[in-house]
């Protein structure tokens, strides 16, 4: 009898442990955003708190327009480096098929930026905690701490981290005074405009888009505009199969 009890205890403890481990690794608590069909939304329990997200309606995004990119790069003093080997980008436009995979019917260029992943592999690679996920879901870089090991750049599966191979100031013609530049030897990427959010403004790219193609809001708030759009449309994410849980979505 005694023996059976113990066995039962061990079995339960083991199951509890497994469940705990699954939860900790995000296996069992799948967040809802990866289910990109509207039917799946209802079945998924919501998450608490703030998680900023972005949605591109690429149907409204005209070929050849780069206003969002220009606005972002100007606001954040992103240097304009021509060489492919040294290029720095917070936002860029790429072939939709290459970006979003075969589900994307169109090969027209669509905008891309850091996905502010809920499970960011860049953060798991950083030896100093200089790239990390904030409580509002923004994946930020501490430029005061980054040692320039480029592990994050290597481990971002979307190639959204850039490194300052040379002095960025040399490649800045008309800097924005309110926002700092970076220096040679650190990485940089889109900050989801945390500098503007804190002043109650929308991201620079969102404001710059004349077509209203970019929505920005709290993914965890069922009444937000972005959630309404997500629930009413078919959307895609970049490489969802990697389990990084991107916070940037696309309507094709």
């Amino acid at each position: 009898m005694m023996k059976n009890d113990r066995r039962e205890f061990i079995r339960k403890a083991g199951m509890g442990l497994l469940a705990g481990m699954g939860a900790a690794s995000g296996l069992l608590t799948g967040g809802g955003f990866e289910r990109t069909t509207s039917a799946a939304w209802a079945a998924v329990p919501g998450e608490e708190g703030l998680r900023w997200g972005m949605l591109f309606d690429t149907r409204r995004c005209p070929e050849g327009c780069t206003l969002c990119i220009e606005s972002c790069h100007h606001t954040h003093n992103v240097p304009d480096i021509a060489s492919l080997e040294g290029k720095i980008e917070w936002m860029h436009k790429e072939n939709g098929r290459e970006l979003l995979g075969s589900l994307c019917a169109s090969t027209a260029a669509v905008p891309a930026l850091c996905n502010h992943c809920a499970e960011p592999s860049c953060a798991r690679a950083c030896p100093t905690g200089s790239i990390f996920r904030r409580t509002d879901g923004i994946v930020a870089i501490d430029y005061h701490r980054c040692v320039g090991c480029r592990s994050c750049m290597q481990s971002c599966p979307y190639g959204e981290v850039s490194f300052n191979w040379s002095d960025p100031r040399a490649a800045l013609k008309n800097p924005t005074v309110e926002y700092p530049t970076r220096q040679r030897g650190v990485v940089e990427k889109c900050n989801f405009c945390s500098d503007r959010l804190v002043r109650g403004k929308k991201p620079s790219c969102v404001e710059a888009c004349p077509e209203g193609a970019i929505s920005f809001g709290n993914l965890n708030d069922p009444s937000s505009e972005i959630r309404r759009l997500l629930e009413s449309s078919e959307t895609l994410q970049r490489k969802p199969e990697l389990g990084t849980r991107p916070s940037v979505f696309y309507i094709i």
Binding site: P127, G129, V147, G148, G185
Partner: peptide, 22 residues
């Protein structure tokens, strides 16, 4: 291999245990 060599001590002072590289 560090881009910011003068911050080398950061590797010891600010480890992030979740990252194997730390």
């Amino acid at each position: 291999d560090l881009g910011m060599q003068r911050r080398i001590l950061t590797l010891l002072l600010n480890p992030s245990p979740g990252a194997p590289a730390s």
